[in-house]
Nucleic acid binder design. Sequence first.
RNA 1: GCGCCCGUAGCUCAACUGGAUAGAGCGUUGGCCUCCGGAGCCAAAGGUUAUGGGUUCAACUCCCGUCGGGCGCACCA
Length: 527
Amino acid sequence: MTLKQHLSESLRASLDRLDLAPEQKALVAAHPVRVEYPEARFGDYASPVAMELARILKKNPALIAEQVVAGLPGRETWAAVDIVKPGFINFRLSDAARTKWVRTILETPTWGDATPAKKERVLLEFVSANPTGPLHVGHGRWAAIGDTLARVLRAAGLEVETEFYVNDAGVQIAKLKETVAAIRTGKEIPEGGYHGDHMQVFKTELGDPVEYFLAGQKATLAKVGTAFDRYFRETSLHQSGAVDKTIAWLKEHGHTYEQEGALWFRTTPFGDDKDRVLIKGDGQKTYFAVDIAYHAEKVRRGYDRLINIFGADHHGYQGRLGAAVTVLSEGRSRLDIVIGQLVSLFRDGEPVRMSKRTGDIVTLDEVVEEIGSDAARYFLGSGRAATPLEFDLALALKQESDNPVYYVQYAHARLASVLRKAGEEGIPVAASFDFAAVRGPHSEELAIQLIRFPEEIEGMAASLEIHHLATWLSGLAAILHRHYGEHRYVDAADREKSGQYLALVVAVKQVIARALGLLGVSAPEKM
RNA sequence: GCGCCCGUAGCUCAACUGGAUAGAGCGUUGGCCUCCGGAGCCAAAGGUUAUGGGUUCAACUCCCGUCGGGCGCACCA
């Protein structure tokens, strides 16, 4: 259990002991106990619960806070519990508690991992780019976010499979093949075909264009450290008859109707804003019908939860797909859709249009080539998915050697260097860490930031917002750099104290490496 | 026209989903290596959180309006 949870439960226990009328007791019991992180000067944890209960209990928040503190169990964990102005309750960890938790971190190489209340099986689908060209920066954003989300969910104790849906059938693929045939025979590219320099390879490249692009996309994803558990092909749905079976199932269960020669799926009762066509008047199945069959397949596999990462250009799909999953799973599976806003490309402030048709496309490969995988992963994964990202190539290139990711990596390399130095001096890492030995400027912050790591993981798993990882990590790096400036870790004159510092160094280094790993960024020993 | 998302320091982004004096990186200005890595640290400048109302002990966060930007609104894929 995390420290935050411990505190939350202690507060709950204290609230239960308040002398209240039965109806008030019920209200208090229903009220969540929130614990948050205050500014360092106030302490390590804080709770606004007394202020929140002031209205319900019709009492002065400071008075409530006093009573809560009076009945609080587990006081030995806290060096100080203060009540401040409106009614905040602030908690400062005791040295003994810091010692205990840091020792736990040192004994736990997987520190950060959390244990879920329920071990859910999750299918996470992302990227799913059409195999009609190379991946662009937008795909890179979904890859960075999706891959990190998968790692974070696993750290949070969920069973996660990742999947890339390959649209290898349908009209666009037919257009692609026509285009390739034209290029190979030296004819003009047909109406609605694919233009652009990246198509010219088919003058000499003789393979199937779908396989060619898919292989290229996989190679690009590998460069940014993203591998999928499964590539699921649309054609397999057609071959297995899954599309027809799914439509038949919907018919049998009364979810469809015919109108004007088309077959409609009644999605509006399940949150969609209009019903959708499955089979068109000309007898052709819609793209949506195929997509439903795909999600029927996911449901059939029995996941507790489906998560899809969609670009904002597909957000209109949310309602109908959610309705489909509800119907197909008969309410048993839940579909979460993470909408990621698009990436706008700029070069020196000038917008760069991205289109596979015009060919003015900046590929993910090129960007990775320019700024490297680490910087790309960090940059694309550190912003909130819901916020549009403006990516300036010239800026990214300029910051090549002065990028936020290096700030964090440098912290790691610096600690590696400290440990090397200690090795040369023959100073051993203390076997039994004692926080009191390393007390001083920023030491408390450093310890607490490490202790919070699993709390961050839990928070991200709940919100599906992984950008917090980069924020928290750069916070840790900042504290470390400041701490480094104030303390001398390796001092041959005081081997005992140095050993204690080294234990802290090992803990910080371990946690930074783990967090960078979740981000898909390397943790260098030297830079 | 309707719907979803966004608007925070000069630039790129945070702010724990309603908490305390809105924070980082880049850029700018001025300091800091006889000493474990100066890819770092310290200090300064920079904000009426697009804008006008509302809700409350408390609003960047919630509600309504306005302005600006992105994306959707097919018997397309």
